[in-house]
Design a protein around this nucleic acid. Sequence first.
DNA 1: GCAAATTAATGATTTATTCAAG
DNA 2: CTTGAATAAATCATTAATTTGC
Lengths: 225, 225
Amino acid sequence: MGSSMKVHQFARGFWPEHEPSLTLGCKRLRSLAPKLANTVDSTTTTAGVAAFDLKSFIKPESGPRSKFGSFDEKRDSPQVETHPGGTRWNPTQEQIGILEMLYKGGMRTPNAQQIEQITAQLGKYGKIEGKNVFYWFQNHKARERQKQKRSSLGLGHCPRTPVPITTITLETRGGFERDQEVSPYKRKCRSWASESLEEEDQSKSCTDQEGDRTLELFPLHPEGR
Amino acid sequence: MGSSMKVHQFARGFWPEHEPSLTLGCKRLRSLAPKLANTVDSTTTTAGVAAFDLKSFIKPESGPRSKFGSFDEKRDSPQVETHPGGTRWNPTQEQIGILEMLYKGGMRTPNAQQIEQITAQLGKYGKIEGKNVFYWFQNHKARERQKQKRSSLGLGHCPRTPVPITTITLETRGGFERDQEVSPYKRKCRSWASESLEEEDQSKSCTDQEGDRTLELFPLHPEGR
DNA sequence: GCAAATTAATGATTTATTCAAG
DNA sequence: CTTGAATAAATCATTAATTTGC
């Protein structure tokens, strides 16, 4: 149980809304601001998008079992079992150091491949899952910004921590964009992968579980607290 | 693929909601600078977009392929090919109907198991992935609330939509809790996995795939856009 | 009547907040 | 108090509708 399992989650936050179904007819006002530039955009965008839309879906596929794992490999625990049951990730100094290094280098929201690699690297220093990496970047970015804002208010000037423009590429070929405080949106997508670290036994062969395999887990809630 | 692994604890479910704090107060005004679109012409737009978007997007799971797809295989199209390329989920009426039914029954934020099952059921009516279910609930909840708030402001009364207490169990043995406005926080975690529901071929043996499968995605971001 | 141009919905992401473990 | 984790709000981006011109 507590053990966490693996889990993979993806998406982090999202939340929009929609409306009640059948109420047709009710139209409300239009969306307020959204449009702005859109007019143009839509067209352009659409077209444009379509064009490059090919996004690549690399499609990872499915794979559920991952990396090493798959089998029972249980990780022989590299070394730490630090994280008790399934509580929360407790980063080691090395891990933090690396993460900060990456952050300072400009990394903001690593994509799936990057997260995989980072996770793999950091895994050498202690247990960690992809989501931890993801969250770390999210939180760090947010808190860094928050801090900066606070200080600017207090001091009245804006420091604006210049971020060195170093491109840290981790070995991914893609490189990543960095955006410091860039404007609000960039929008890209992000994916993650994690590995299964915990592994208990379960998940072993693919064929085994019947029922299970069918599932794709989704948001899971570990425990209910 | 799909094999997901396992684990999920029992997550039950409740979903915390938290309430909209009425006191928000802070509304933030964002600088809206974002849009590059306007003013600009195609060039900009294109360029801009291209720039951001092109990153890597790993797409999660199942996939999209379609467009040019060509990868091999893929779905024999059960029935609908409605989903064109691989763009975004385009729910069918049946799917929406079921989702709304669940929503009205009190389901708010389904946990992993629930999403799995819902996805499986809805998959009968058209292609769908777990994340779509998750997003749907998030969006529906948020927009429902938003609408209510707006109307309340306009009308000055508070409706408070009473939710019929019907327990919809989907066939999950567990049933789920419904929480309408349950207490404040519950906090649990959520994870996802995606799946591949494809059932068909693919994913059979575990050992097969090569590279891709390696990932198990976490927070995933479906596709890029 | 149909297709481009708009507009309304709504799926999918990102950012900001909040909660709570350590 | 620090910070990992999770949720809600704000947005962006597509797609379904609807409108408009021919």
